[in-house]
């Protein structure tokens, strides 16, 4: 076990898999110099055939990776930021995601997409979190919140024979945690109880786990006990663990930093109302990003993005 940063855990996961498997190549904008820190040193280690800088052509390089994957390679793609995923939406959703099914199982498209989620004064075109979009389209989508989860889940993503979207919240990238030095994998579809509690289940995704843990500490002093369920993988989703937790507490708040309407939180709320109806003592609540374009000014931005104080307010409302 080493206490390392999230970013280092991501980098280690990729590096160790690349050392083991020659069919993996790493591709994206500015990856040879390691602009975003994940691929620092990869070029020296693996050379230009396996560490491929691309022009600014998101649609093009996602499509090329699909073609290479169908021909036996296992590409790992790095997006510069979250919103650039939209450039490649046809290539992701209509191509990569559909070939295995459409071909009757003949083609496999094992591609891992690493997508950093920018946060803070990035304004309108650099702040959207498109994970609900990819989940909606049936694409395997993961959102690790800790260094340990990141390494184990990314190794699973790289070994998976389907395209997998990996969203990396910028707010957790610098956070530290204990991570084994060697390889290990965490299977998809296994949520994690980040904190046990009795009164309310908080379904927290990505960096909202940090805020939920903060809120739990504060509320503990008031005698309110939060249970924090981190799904870790959004598709597949660990429904059993979610249901078990809500059936225990009888109350649920979904705490998610993506848009509210038709968002990931809405899906969780629907599942809870369907499967936990008998045990619910209060309505299921959501604390999410507003259905609004993220503004630049920090003062305005605060009105749009969810944080721990909003969660505390909702919890107090439910407990009353």
């Amino acid at each position: 076990m080493r206490n390392i940063r999230y970013l280092k855990a991501v980098s280690d996961a990729v590096l160790q898999e690349m050392e083991k498997d020659n069919s993996i190549f790493y591709m994206g904008e500015d990856v040879r110099c390691g602009l975003r820190g994940i691929s620092r040193g990869f070029m020296e280690k693996f050379g230009p055939d396996r560490v491929i800088n691309t022009p600014i052509s998101e649609s093009g390089f996602v499509g090329i990776a699909t073609g290479a994957a169908m021909e036996g390679m296992r590409p790992i793609l790095e997006f510069e930021i979250n919103e650039f995923v939209f450039f490649a939406f046809d290539e992701l959703i209509d191509q990569a995601q559909k070939y295995h099914y459409m071909s009757g199982g003949k083609y496999k498209v094992p591609v891992t997409y690493l997508v950093p989620l920018m946060l803070g004064s990035m304004a309108g075109q650099h702040s959207d979190y498109p994970y609900a979009h990819t989940v909606h389209a049936g694409m395997k989508t993961i959102l690790p919140s800790t260094p340990y989860d990141a390494k184990g889940l990314i190794i699973s993503a790289i070994r998976d024979n389907d395209p997998v979207m990996v969203f990396l919240p910028t707010r957790v990238l610098a956070g530290k945690g204990d991570v084994p030095e060697g390889q290990y994998s965490i299977p998809f579809g296994q949520g994690d109880i980040k904190r046990e509690g009795d009164d309310i289940t908080v379904v927290a995704t990505g960096h909202m786990v940090i805020d939920a843990l903060n809120a739990a500490k504060i509320l503990e002093q008031e005698g309110i006990s939060l249970e924090i369920y981190d799904p870790r993988t959004l598709l597949p989703l660990d429904i059993d663990l979610l249901v078990k937790s809500v059936n225990k507490t009888g109350r649920a708040v979904i705490f998610d930093d993506s848009n509210r309407t038709c968002g990931f939180a809405a899906e969780i709320a629907a599942i809870i109302s369907d499967k936990c109806f008998e045990s619910l003592k209060a309505p299921v609540k959501r604390v999410t990003r507003a259905d609004c374009i993220v503004p630049f000014s920090p003062l305005l931005e605060k009105q749009i993005l969810p944080k721990d104080t909003h969660l505390i307010d909702i919890v107090n409302e439910l407990i009353k």
Partner: peptide, 16 residues
């Protein structure tokens, strides 16, 4: 148009 990507991707695999 997507077959142009796909073919280029297949060709990238051949080249690597």
């Amino acid at each position: 148009g997507s077959n142009c990507h796909m073919a280029a991707g297949v060709a990238l695999a051949f080249k690597i």
